[in-house]
């Protein structure tokens, strides 16, 4: 059974045809409220990185530097250092993003990312976000607000998942008690 992750799965995905970097950036929730000028600036700041098939992007436990957006290719997110299908949380595709928690702090990564096919990623990193906040606070606040919205949405989803699991656990415990009562 596939794991459900509010942290790593893309719960914000939209379909679009335009494949330019600006349009990809615009579809990422973190940059959603930015003006065209601001998006042009982000386009100049981000890094474009090429990964070959099976190449590790980052490993769980390493210090994170920032987030990635998939321009092309596929990326598998896995729990733990192993990158086989058994440890897979989710497979992300073009337009998806991951690793956004590293924009907030340099805490260790909570999963491993590996390129499933030849992939081109757009990297947006914490040092650049800090620089934007220092130089252009208006734009910095917009990005931070978007990051907050993403975190809140993920928190709500996690909370919902947790409640469902707790409810399931409660029912299962009740069933066990009933079974034990009828046997007695």
């Amino acid at each position: 059974m596939k794991r459900v992750s509010a942290l790593w799965g893309n719960i914000f995905k939209e379909q679009a045809e335009d494949k330019s970097i600006i349009s990809i950036l615009k579809r990422v929730p973190i940059f959603s409220q930015l003006t065209k000028t601001e998006l042009n600036l982000i386009e100049k700041i981000v890094y474009l990185r090429n990964y070959h098939e099976d190449e590790i992007i980052f490993v769980e436990g390493e210090q994170g530097a920032g987030m990635y957006i998939i321009e092309s290719g596929k990326v598998r997110i896995c729990l733990g250092p192993n990158t086989d299908e058994a440890h897979e949380i989710v497979v992300l595709e073009a337009g998806d993003f991951f690793g956004d928690l590293a924009l907030i702090d340099d805490a260790p990564r909570s999963a491993t990312a590996v390129a499933l096919s030849s992939s081109r990623l757009i990297g947006f990193f914490r040092s650049d976000l800090i620089s934007i906040i220092n130089r252009m606070p208006r734009m910095g606040v917009k990005i931070q607000h978007n990051i907050l919205k993403i975190l809140v949405r993920r928190l709500r989803k996690t909370d919902k998942n947790l409640n469902e699991i707790q409810e399931e656990l409660r029912r299962a415990t009740e069933r066990t008690h009933q079974t034990e009562g009828s046997q007695a």
Partner: peptide, 24 residues
Amino acid sequence: YRIKRTFVGFMPNRYFELTLNIQQ
């Protein structure tokens, strides 16, 4: 930042995030 980007851009993928963290 352009000079920094050019230098960091030359780093192989394996050391890329490490370099960014060290630089910051």
